[in-house]
Amino acid sequence: MNAIPVTDTRLAKVAARDVNVYYGQKHALKHVDLDIRANDVTALIGPSGCGKSTFLRCINRMNDLIENAQVTGSLTLDGDNIYDKAIDVVQLRARIGMVFQKPNPFPKSIYDNIAYGPRIHGMARDQTELDEIVMNSLEKAGLLGEVKDRLEESGTGLSGGQQQRLCIARAIAVAPEVILMDEPCSALDPIATAKVEELIDELRENFTIVIVTHSMQQAARVSQRTAFFHLGELVEVGDTEQIFTNPQHPLTQGYITGRFG
């Protein structure tokens, strides 16, 4: 008899220990300890300004781009220190991809949107290999059928939902291990949202996903783990089912049931 549940024996893909973020004097993220499990979708929820996006951006060092931002504590990817001075941030962001709130395809062809990353990372030896990566990524993003006859057309000409899936395909193309999503569906209609959610569920097989969302329903639908942030602190983290049926902390309870002042 194995008394330990299977999920607990999986190693944390990303581990945060006592992570703090300061924007100048403002203490935006306070002493966060959080394990992101491999091949799980982890949803980060909480009211605006709670620190969930700040935490997300710590994972691939997007906060480096913000002046005054200072990150302390430890963040590791498979045990490697993400904030190691020796680490190449461009390489790191190839391992930890990101999808943003608003679809932001490059003003280039659909093909080049996907091919851009593999090209700069030198992932393809010849045109055939590059074609393969592009097709594969579009296929995995569930977009191939819709665009295969117009790969030379501009990515910006696609519908909002298609653009977002193009951005997901672009993130997948460089074979990341973790994909960070910052409210990926907030600009999409319900059908496009459902397609992206279905995609997230499929991607889970090969990637570890962290998603920030303001839609509680979305967190409940797509994630296995949910973390609730409030005023820069991680209040509660648990299996999504438990968080949405029997949250342990009154703040979590108040937030997800719509009792928040």
Binding site: F244, T245, N246, P247, T252, Q253, I256, T257
Partner: peptide
């Protein structure tokens, strides 16, 4: 209402 947590219960 798509209730959750204590409301759902």
């Amino acid at each position: 209402r798509q209730p959750v947590a204590s409301d759902l219960r």
